[in-house]
Amino acid sequence: MSASDAPRRGGGGFAGAVASEWTKAITVRSTWACLASAVVLVGLYVVIIGVSLRSPAPGADAPAEVVPSTVAAGGLMIMGQFALITLATLAIAGEYSTGSIRNTLQCVPVRGRMLLAKSAMVMPILFSAGVLLGLAGSLAADAALGTVAAPQSGPERLTAALAMGAYLALTAVLVIGIGAMVRSVAGTLTVGFVLILILPMALQSASVHLLQTVGAYFPGSAGMALMGIAEDQPYPAATGLLVLLGWALLGLLGGMTLLNRRDA
């Protein structure tokens, strides 16, 4: 009589949890609004910065050549990522603000699985967004830079775009973890951006060498190293990827620990 007696054994588990998160993401307007905002923000940045780079810097005779992908990456770091991090924030902290987290945990009561499913949902979305913004952004930067655009091959553009996707995907997982710990949208955004951007910027502008070194290992700095737009590249791109991976795991670990300990 009850469903448990029926011979249906498939579905559910981790795959079911991911499918559910995916369904939730695409059925709210905010997801699409965040993606559209990211496109607009990166587009605006690329056009404005690209055109302004056509003129020589003060004191210079001629404008320097600029690699188009770096303009796109800059647009992502300075503007576009805000919208995309918000997308990840809403996936977890948004559920706490509406109370729907309790519904989610009824469907997927294993809390670690729930958090991993949310990560598995945001990763491909933010990765794709990063790659597409990277490719489209570099082409738009070509046009905006005009004659000062440095020649860049297709594979070079793709590599740069993949780095942008990887940065966003790993940062999104960190944000999912922060959301599970902080449990409010405003709080998650604040903690997220302080950790990702503001703290490393503050530390790197300090005159103490140790603080500068520490600052280079925060997520935003690691991302810029990965994308090759850090001011004086502190370590190779691959190291940047590892550092970001570490932050993502740290976020997940912290989120899971608190999720398992606290009441929903």
Partner: peptide, 15 residues
Amino acid sequence: RSARNHLLAMARSNG
């Protein structure tokens, strides 16, 4: 989210 999509997301989680 619409009621139907809300239930659909729940349904997918449990096959």
